[in-house]
Nucleic acid binder design. Structure first.
Lengths: 142, 142
DNA sequence: GTTTTTCATGCAACTTGGTTGCAAAAGTTT
DNA sequence: AAACTTTTGCAACCAAGTTGCATGAAAAAC
């Protein structure tokens, strides 16, 4: 995780995104959360921004490959900050875990997505491996 | 794929679902489609049913493990008929493919989901492996 | 360094996918 | 058949997210 505003500014720059104050806040919030966040979750943490502004940031980030979006089965898309410094394709494809109890989504950074063979003539552009269940924290609590 | 109404009736019965006319129609439509269908897609094929009725069928089917729901990144959940005759957990976990061009989702029945090791104390309840890209039909068309 | 032009933002209104309340219809039980 | 339960259609509602538009901030042109 980064800690200075300036680093987020550079990160945005790296991805060809003009670093406005709002955008830095959104990038920072995503990074500090340490897990993929939904629009609504970000709204709760960025009280000063309108949800439409956050939404537009996320869309822009996605277009510029600063975040990638993932559907976890909650009915909200979540956005994860790409930690690769370049704006090229993700080198860091890992499994995600959605906890059905606490409704949080975790990155299993240590667990790469096993690859598969597609049928002929299917072109893969992205892959999502999502496990749903009960996370360690919720399990120990029950 | 089945072909007689009676078979759907039995299928519903097997899963402890009272087989009303509407429910048989929904099960049949799902089966005939041969791919996971969204509520909206089903609405288009079942003009005589109200969407709330279809929605309630799908919810009921899901509760009784006759369908399972999957999020494919379109913003609509899709429902796939479980072909296992029993109402127990799916023996038939396969990869899905979402075409970003025609917005259809396909089952890659021949491609089982490769398993992974979860970190300690994480309990997996279900797994979703979703590939997005361009399907064979759309690729050949372009 | 001010004007011009482009870009970003907040607000409210809208869109979309889906659910719910309720009364009528269909199906069960006695 | 009467009493009861379940299912259905309709309309109203809801939540998540997007869009139109007027205002404000930043960058480019002069």
């Amino acid at each position: 995780m980064m800690s200075h505003k300036k680093e987020y500014l550079l990160l945005l720059d790296d991805h060809g995104i003009r670093p406005t104050a709002n955008r830095i806040l959104v990038a920072e919030a995503l990074d500090r959360a340490g897990r993929p966040m939904s629009l609504m979750e970000l709204e709760d943490r960025l009280l000063t921004l309108d949800k439409s502004s956050i939404s537009r940031c996320l869309t822009l980030f996605k277009e510029n490959h600063l975040v990638h979006a993932l559907e976890d089965g909650s009915d909200a898309v979540r956005y994860e900050l790409c930690h690769s410094r370049s704006h090229h394709e993700d080198d860091d494809q890992h499994v995600h875990f959605y906890c059905e109890k606490c409704h949080r989504t975790f990155c299993l950074h240590e667990t790469p997505i096993p690859s598969i063979d597609l049928p002929d003539d299917y072109v893969a552009l992205s892959v999502n491996y999502m496990v749903k269940g009960i996370c360690a924290a919720c399990k120990s609590k029950s």
